[in-house]
């Protein structure tokens, strides 16, 4: 069944989009990420203009994330205060990121910036996570005790002013590192067209050292806030949100997210992280490959007009 999208101005297979939305929603619910880093490249590959794909994808991510946040909050594993602090930084970051992206598009380097940031961030984060989680799995197989968790957090978390108590995460740290983390993720999400969960999740585990069970729900909560904001901004400023595209994606997305959030209880945390690491690494390498492979076609048409 084909649908003509009013803003993207292309005809797409509706059923395929619902199924894709469901798959990405499942992954989103399972890992606590938005799934934008998977969906945006797929949509662009299907012929949807990148500007529309990025903007409408934010809407889909908001839907599937809110669906899993509700599921997680019932299990009382969402740190709303930490999520709010991260989202505040994220909002600042996305304003900066939108301007950066406009400038990159103007000089024609947006494609390059997207490829490089996918390769760099997904590659590094995927690689590190894979090493860490495979190590943990191997130790468990050999019957060794898990590596003792270093309870000492980076001193910077305590040395800085504006300390706030985060009871759910059992933290009493300065708000500056989480706000900066939020800003950084916000910029990156605007440039890469993603929610930023794949950076937030490891950063909360390894930098803020939040308790693992709280991380996923909290990351999703901040994703809901930033992607909702991005959706409104994109629609208001660029008129690039395709509500038909977003609706098709989120029909599958919200159901997939529920199934994913349920399935997450059946996996061990390190196995889940290893799977996510593989996924992140694969997407990063695929997106970055274009930088190294000799192109068949030396010219590329740029979408969107010069503004």
């Amino acid at each position: 069944m084909h649908f003509y999208l009013p803003i993207a101005e292309v005809s797409v297979n509706a059923l395929l989009l619902v199924v894709l939305g469901g798959l990405v929603g499942f992954i989103s619910g399972l890992f606590g990420i938005g799934g934008g880093f998977l969906m945006t490249p797929v949509l662009v590959f299907m012929g949807i203009p990148p500007v529309v794909a990025v903007a409408s994808e934010a809407n889909h991510v908001a839907a599937s994330s809110v669906s899993s946040v509700i599921a997680y909050s019932r299990k009382r594993v969402v740190d709303f205060r930490m999520g709010g602090v991260l989202a505040t930084g994220g909002a600042i970051g996305s304003f900066i990121g939108v301007e950066v992206f406009r400038w990159l598009r103007l000089i024609g380097q947006a494609d390059m910036a997207v490829s490089v940031s996918y390769l760099l961030f997904l590659g590094v984060i995927g690689g590190l996570m894979l090493m860490e989680s495979v190590g943990a799995i191997l130790r468990r197989r050999k019957g060794q005790p898990p590596k003792p968790r270093r309870e000492r957090r980076p001193m910077l978390l305590y040395a800085l002013p504006f300390k706030v108590r985060f009871p759910r995460s059992r933290l009493y740290i300065s708000v500056i590192p989480p706000v900066l983390l939020g800003v950084f993720v916000g910029i990156l999400s605007a440039v890469m067209g993603v929610g930023g969960g794949f950076i937030l999740v490891p950063a909360m585990i390894y930098l803020l050292r939040m308790p693992a069970p709280v991380v996923v729900g909290t990351s999703l909560f901040q994703i809901v806030i930033t992607t909702s904001l991005t959706s409104v901004l994109q629609a208001g400023r660029n008129q690039t949100v395709d509500i038909v595209l977003a609706t098709l994606l989120l029909i599958g997305g919200v159901i997939g997210a529920q199934l994913g959030a349920r399935a997450s209880g059946r996996f061990r945390a390190e196995e889940l992280r290893a799977l996510l690491a593989l996924l992140v690494l694969a997407v990063g390498l695929r997106m970055g490959a274009d930088l190294f492979i000799h192109p068949d076609e030396a010219f590329v048409l740029m979408t969107g007009t010069a503004r």
Binding site: N59, R237, L250
Partner: peptide, 24 residues
Amino acid sequence: SKDRPWTYGVLSVIVALGAGWVAS
């Protein structure tokens, strides 16, 4: 989407959040 872009944006987010809530 062209005439009232901000209303359109807010509406699209309400649809998204509503759908997520309904599913859960």
